[in-house]
Design a protein around this nucleic acid. Structure first.
Lengths: 205, 205
DNA sequence: TAAGGGTTTGACCAAACGGTCAATCCGACG
DNA sequence: CGTCGGATTGACCGTTTGGTCAAACCCTTA
């Protein structure tokens, strides 16, 4: 299903430029709002040249999602079953918050896709996501059973982490309008809040 | 700036039908994804007839936002300064969660708008929002100073409430894919989680 | 009932859109 | 150097889109 590996250096360079440009445009405008002309300009190519490397706008979009999904979900997989439960989850929260700061386009890309009802997410991708989430939910439940984590429903805990951290990327325009100071100050404030918040909520009594 | 009050019953009925249909379409497709034909069909009118009542697609969108914003923000204003801090904020959380269940289209409408960088939100609307948020943040700070609320930064607390509750409307497709059971069960689980979570996080030690 | 104004619509337009294609360009390799 | 296959593009196409307009419709009221 995914594209073959590039053969020549020109192919590698151009496919990379296209995906980079497409990330800019799709994240800012959504799938329907993005135009091939805008992607071509962002990639520094002509529109027919875009379609020499990808057969359609949707193919670019799918390749982009496929390329970014693993990196986007990696921190959830990286939770160490051997570590301290509260500290492991807190590290995940802060890692996700940092990704909202350093990778806001990826966050908005997925936010747009899910908001529209995930029309481009295949059953296999959704299945991969569900397996990962269910696995980590099972880990959380074991931690809870061992009394090392406050008893909270794991799926909703994961949702709350996604929601609170990605909020600073997806709804950055609103956050900027409501909180004074520069970006660094805002993310420092968010870090302090989320650390204290999740520490209180997750530490077993 | 806002449209005048409708004069005739036909005007009232059709403007209402247009705004209802537009809510369906804009919430599902976003501003750029929505088409006048789709809105017209959802409203049960012809496209030229739409444009007899509103001068443009953007005018429909602006009227819709203007109509819905106050109701959408009302629960935040409704927090009672004379009530118990933790219970007041918890009631706000559960009210917002309930709105995600009963008004998901409104939630997605605003989510789409903010995701795109609030290109249609005027300075006056943003100003109204900021005054409201800053006011309630001030109330939270007084509660904290009185030792009746755990010391958390109020703006980030409000963001977390918006994020965790609206998540169940904005990203419903993802929640449905990851949590088994029907909608009622999912929202019951979310309610239990958020109640316990915020109660722990907000109760002063 | 006749008229007048508010209401509705089929037909249309210009621009933007995703995508195609034949022609051209260019760089690697014998 | 010549050539051959990959790379690039200007011109173009059919469709969709937001919006227009003149004609027709219909509801109210005198």
């Amino acid at each position: 299903m995914t594209a073959d590996k590039p053969k020549t250096r020109i192919q590698a360079k151009n496919q990379d430029a296209i995906l980079k440009g497409a990330l800019d445009v799709f994240a800012a405008e959504g799938f329907k709002g993005a135009t091939l002309d805008a992607i071509a300009e962002a990639a520094g190519l002509s529109k027919p040249n875009l379609l020499y490397y990808f057969p359609s706008k949707e193919a670019i979009y799918l390749a982009l999602i496929d390329t970014l999904l693993d990196a986007w979900l990696a921190p959830l997989s990286a939770i160490d079953p051997g570590g301290d439960p509260v500290e492991e989850i807190l590290a995940y929260v802060l890692r996700k918050l940092d990704m909202s700061r350093t990778m806001p386009r990826e966050s908005r890309l997925f936010a747009n896709e899910i908001l529209q009802g995930m029309p481009h997410i295949s059953a296999t991708i959704a299945g991969r996501l569900k397996v990962l989430v269910d696995d980590q939910a099972g880990l959380f439940e074991r931690w809870i059973a061992d009394g090392r984590l406050a008893p909270v429903e794991p799926h909703h805990l994961i949702f709350s982490i996604w929601a609170t951290t990605q909020h600073y990327a997806d709804f950055a325009s609103q956050v900027e309008a409501l909180v004074p100071g520069d970006e660094t100050a805002r993310f420092d404030g968010a870090r302090d809040f989320l650390d204290a918040f999740y520490r209180r909520a997750l530490t077993p009594s």
